[in-house]
């Protein structure tokens, strides 16, 4: 067993026993399978069926990239504001 193996064993143990158990798999009231059923079911079908062909007219890659950036930034901004709000409450 090499030095790298020993180090990787420690990392593996930390991930398996300490880090991974902290993360839940499902949110209460809205499990991952519910989300997948919702998105992969009628919603995706109808969206694609209704807007097929629009990719020729609009740069969808650009559009989805910007939508992704907007969603990420807005959520991050909301999380930071919520954190600051909580800190203010705790500090009085």
């Amino acid at each position: 067993m090499s030095v790298a193996d020993i180090l990787l064993s420690i990392v593996d143990w930390l991930i398996q026993k300490i880090i991974l158990p902290v993360f839940p798999e499902n949110l209460p009231f809205f499990s991952i399978s519910d989300l997948e059923n919702l998105l992969q079911g009628s919603l995706k079908h109808n969206l694609i069926w209704a807007f097929a062909g629009i990719g020729d007219l609009i740069n969808l890659k650009l559009l989805f990239t910007f939508i992704g950036v907007v969603i990420f930034c807005e959520v991050a901004f909301w999380v930071v504001r919520a954190g600051i709000f909580l800190i203010k409450i705790i500090r009085g």
Binding site: F23, E25, L27, L35, K44, I48, G53, G55, L60, F64
Partner: peptide, 22 residues
């Protein structure tokens, strides 16, 4: 694990739509 599984599904959803709409 949450949130990566939820994010992964959302990414897959948008990717499927983006590719299929073409």
């Amino acid at each position: 694990k949450f949130p990566f599984n939820y994010i992964g599904i959302l990414k897959g959803f948008f990717r499927d739509i983006e590719q299929s709409l073409e």
